[in-house]
């Protein structure tokens, strides 16, 4: 195995800084790189061996197993069969696994939609996370697809939790909050509780997407 060294290796710190300064005069550093669509061919680059599951083994932190199913639908109600969902969440006790690579569960996953635009996310139900104000259980989601120009971001909440106290959901116009809440399915068993959630890209029930303000 030949590991080629970076073209930056071997430069003195002074030389790197000189070059960066030169760079800064040409390029305003505060301009964020523009987002572009992920396109239709991301699978072999981002989910090479199929989805990146959230549950990858048996060594799991305590928590309720859940299954979240749903679909991504366009403005005509047609399934989007080339979308990618990227998930980040707390574990069942509301803790974020940020310290070390954890092979069986770290709260991160990727799920590509199938031919019917559908996805199935098996995970642990996130706990109430210990923010400045306690946050209701939720999944963070990025949605990427051909024809989607932004890096779309939102949260998914659960309809059997106390969402009325959540500090982020309170910032969403009340009449649209329902678009961010997964519904508990009546077929839930004791072992795995199932929820349903659809992404509607347009229309009366258009899913709310979020952006941070300074």
């Amino acid at each position: 195995m030949v590991h080629r060294s970076s073209p930056f290796e071997g430069l003195s710190p002074r030389e790197i800084m000189r070059r960066e300064q030169e760079e800064a005069t040409r390029q305003p550093a505060w301009l964020p790189t523009g987002t572009q669509t992920v396109g239709p061919y991301f699978h072999f680059g981002m989910v090479e061996r199929g989805d990146v599951p959230l549950i990858r083994g048996d060594n799991l932190p305590p928590g309720q197993r859940i299954r979240l199913t749903g679909a991504v639908l366009d403005g005509a109600g047609a399934p989007i069969n080339d979308a990618l969902l990227e998930i980040w969440q707390a574990d069942g006790r509301g803790r974020f696994h940020t310290e070390r690579a954890e092979p069986d569960f770290d709260g991160f996953g990727r799920f590509a939609t199938d031919a019917d635009g559908a996805f199935t996310i098996d995970t642990l139900k996130p706990g109430v996370s210990d923010d400045a104000l306690p946050a209701a259980p939720h999944l963070d989601v990025h949605l990427f697809a051909r024809g989607v120009l932004h890096t779309l971001f939102t949260r998914i909440y659960f309809d059997d939790e106390h969402n009325q106290h959540d500090p982020l959901l309170a910032q969403v116009p009340e009449e649209r909050r329902d678009t961010l809440i997964a519904r508990r399915s009546t077929t839930s068993s004791e072992d795995v509780v199932t929820y349903h959630f659809n992404f509607y890209m347009q229309g009366a029930a258009e899913t709310v997407f979020l952006i941070e303000q300074e």
């Binding site: 989007i80 939720h138 969403v172 347009q202």
Partner: peptide, 21 residues
Amino acid sequence: LRGPRNGLIPIHSGLTERTAP
């Protein structure tokens, strides 16, 4: 048919958005 027609909702984010594995 794929681009959301409503604007993005501006929010103050929380711990989930600031952390990563």
